[in-house]
Nucleic acid binder design. Sequence first.
DNA 1: CATAATCCCTCTAGTGACTAGAGCTTCAAG
DNA 2: CTTGAAGCTCTAGTCACTAGAGGGATTATG
Lengths: 136, 136
Amino acid sequence: MFSIGELSKRTGVKIPTIRYYEQMGLIEPPQRSEGNQRRYTRDGLRRLSFIRHSRDLGFTIEDIKGLLELSQHPEKPCRDAHEIAVQHLKDVQSRIGKLRRLERELKRISNCDAGHIADCAVIETLADHSLCETEH
Amino acid sequence: MFSIGELSKRTGVKIPTIRYYEQMGLIEPPQRSEGNQRRYTRDGLRRLSFIRHSRDLGFTIEDIKGLLELSQHPEKPCRDAHEIAVQHLKDVQSRIGKLRRLERELKRISNCDAGHIADCAVIETLADHSLCETEH
DNA sequence: CATAATCCCTCTAGTGACTAGAGCTTCAAG
DNA sequence: CTTGAAGCTCTAGTCACTAGAGGGATTATG
């Protein structure tokens, strides 16, 4: 049995975040000690590790609820889990695309070496979109 | 003089967002009509366009406050504006790096074509970080 | 066994950048 | 002069936490 602090250390999830996950229904309310403190089992640890890892990969809490649900039913078809992952991959790829266009624009405007604001490309470009090279 | 709706159409910033910017001190409270409705000038339009464009490029409201302040003082050195832009560029580049590692991992795990959850790479990998190829 | 240090509890509120809705007033066109 | 669109303020909700107050529980040491 682990206290919440130990669980936190082992998973790298902060204590208030663990309690928040409980509140959100991502993890089940664990048993309590006589003095009302949370006591977790090895199973709770596994579940939280799953959640931690999924969050690191950028899945939303709703996604994770779905994935956890699925993982409880090994006989179900894999299709749904697969779909969640593919959808998320698409999101990630679109975010990368946007950020790369941004990067190009920022590189360009931050090459500015004007002495004064009056001639600064950063300010000028922000004030006038038509000075941009790419859409965004 | 524009109403808030016209300003919204011309800049592409939604009406509640404009009021929010006013509340946050990004734009000055404009004049009001006799019936207490906001009336904007061409200058307000320019300022909001600047903000819109900066937000599109991912600057935070705090960044934008700084940049607006600078743009009001054309005689100031360009250095500060430059620094804000470069810092932001760094942020963007680090976000791109993270997302690309994620993309690789998601591509890998979503190649799964198992029939059942029991053998699904998505679930398996989320449950066990050591199955990952890259750090994240 | 007493005490001190650490840990844990609940509850509320704050973050950033909006967005949505209720319940009301004003404006512009016909 | 009426009517419907557009505007007003205020409150609360979003997401995924994070911080702090004010208390109780557990554990290590003397």
